[in-house]
Simulated scan of single mutants.
Amino acid sequence: MTDVTGVLTLVAIVEFAAGAEAAGQRYEDSVLALLGRHGGHLERRLHGTDGRAEVHMIRFDDRAGYESFLADADRAALRTALGEAAPTTRVIEVHEA
Rank of each mutant, 00 (worst) to 15 (best):
I13C: 05
F16T: 09
A97H: 14
D29I: 03
A77V: 03
I92Q: 14
T9V: 06
H47E: 10
A77N: 08
A53S: 15
M57F: 10
E28Y: 00
Y66A: 08
R63C: 09
S30F: 00
L35K: 03
E96M: 11
G83T: 01
Y27W: 12
I58W: 07
A85K: 07
T89G: 08
A33H: 07
R75Q: 03
A33C: 05
Y27I: 05
L35D: 08
T2H: 04
R63E: 15
A20H: 14
A18S: 12
L8C: 02
D50I: 05
A77W: 06
R26P: 02
H56K: 03
G40Q: 05
T49Y: 13
H47Q: 11
M1T: 13
A81L: 02
A22R: 10
I92W: 11
R45S: 06
E54F: 07
F60S: 03
V91S: 13
M57P: 00
A53L: 07
V7A: 13
T5Y: 06
P87V: 06
H41I: 07
H95R: 15
V91H: 14
T80C: 00
E43P: 00
A97Y: 15
L34D: 05
R79M: 08
L34Q: 05
A97S: 15
D3G: 05
A17I: 00
D29T: 09
E28V: 10
A23F: 02
F16E: 07
V14L: 02
T88D: 12
M1C: 08
G83L: 01
L82F: 05
L35S: 08
G24C: 11
R79G: 04
A23E: 10
I92H: 14
G19D: 05
S68P: 05
T49W: 13
L42I: 04
A12M: 07
E43R: 15
A71G: 06
V14Y: 00
D74H: 01
A33G: 12
L46W: 11
I58Y: 07
V4F: 11
A18C: 05
A12S: 12
D74E: 09
E28C: 01
A12Y: 01
R45V: 02
A97V: 14
D61R: 15
A71K: 07
A23G: 00
D50S: 13
A73F: 00
A53N: 13
G51H: 11
R59I: 08
P87R: 04
T88G: 11
L34T: 02
E28F: 00
A86E: 06
A64R: 09
P87W: 04
V14C: 02
R63P: 07
Y27L: 15
Y27T: 06
E84K: 11
L42M: 02
A20Q: 12
F69W: 12
H38K: 09
E21M: 01
M57K: 10
F16G: 02
V94Q: 02
M1K: 12
H41V: 14
V11L: 10
G6V: 06
G48A: 15
R44L: 10
R63F: 13
E84W: 03
F16H: 14
E43I: 15
A81C: 01
L70Y: 02
A81E: 09
E21T: 07
P87K: 04
L78Y: 09
E67A: 08
T88M: 11
D29P: 03
E96V: 10
R79C: 01
D74Y: 00
Q25M: 08
R52C: 07
E21N: 04
I58Q: 02
R90T: 14
H95Y: 13
